[in-house]
Amino acid sequence: MEWLLNRIQGGKAVRLSLTYGQQKKWLGFLFSVPALVLLFTFLILPVGLAFVYSFMEYNMLNPQGKTFTGLSNYARLFQDAIFFTALKNTLYFSVLVVPLQCAVALGLAILVNKKVKTAVIGRVFFFSPVVTSMVVVAILWTFLYNVDSGLINSALNFFGIPSQPFLLSEGQAMNSIIFMSVWQGAGFQMMIFLAGLKDVPETLYEAADIDGANAWQKFWNVTLPSLKNVTGFVLMITTIQAFRLFIQPYVMTNGGPSDSTKTLVFILYENGFQFRDVGYSSAIAVVFFLVVLSVSLILKKVLNQ
């Protein structure tokens, strides 16, 4: 590493004459350059292109024929009933899934952070739905949710509750997807919480033990305050992920019944790829971006307080 530093700063003499503060500025810039250049080329640039496309009539199969049409895609968007349905569904999903998934993930993380031999097995098991192919997940959950022979309905019947239609019902399909998503996704957040738990000083728990605190008091007075930063982060990324819901309804319900599981990214994909309407799809993307960005910034403000 030294050689690099020397090169950049023109030899040892210079290096010696730079203060730590000056080095910080230089290297700070240098360290972030690779990431920033890559982000610019492969994310900011495409986002910019999408923004431009949103003002165009652009058939994906005929890129030469694209023409500027001003705000017409946006005008169409705000008259499109499906867009508002998708917006509502996405919000509904996010509001329910974020607290649920974060709570489950935290619970699992605390469980597998315990000093027991099964902790490692637990980590692998709880994380496994994240790595299991959506094909398998969809097949199995369709079985579980089956009206006639599903395991969940069998369990309900056992307790005297009549069978529920789940994915086949306009009223229950989204809730069924929420339940499944929590199960599938919690392992992801669990890993972040787990990394956070490893930073909680052991001494704090020892002190709490001496004070005679019970498990709940330790959780409330030691664990949670120490995880403040991490929890804020997890809430934020879970919210953003929740807004991007697409693959579950795409595979399991195709947006139905009666559009009840259509989300913003679902209609973005449908218009862009199935209907090949790049312009309209890009307009949805731009609005999506603005909505989620404002939600995240509000969330960040709230969390900072």
């Binding site: 947006g255 139905g256 019944p257 009666s258 449908e270 199935q274 209907f275």
Partner: peptide, 19 residues
């Protein structure tokens, strides 16, 4: 056709569910 086929599929899905 892409719009017809996709939206028809979704409509029939609803019809089979009692729409």
């Amino acid at each position: 056709y892409p719009v017809l086929s996709t939206k028809y599929g979704q409509a029939v899905q609803n019809i089979f569910l009692g729409g």
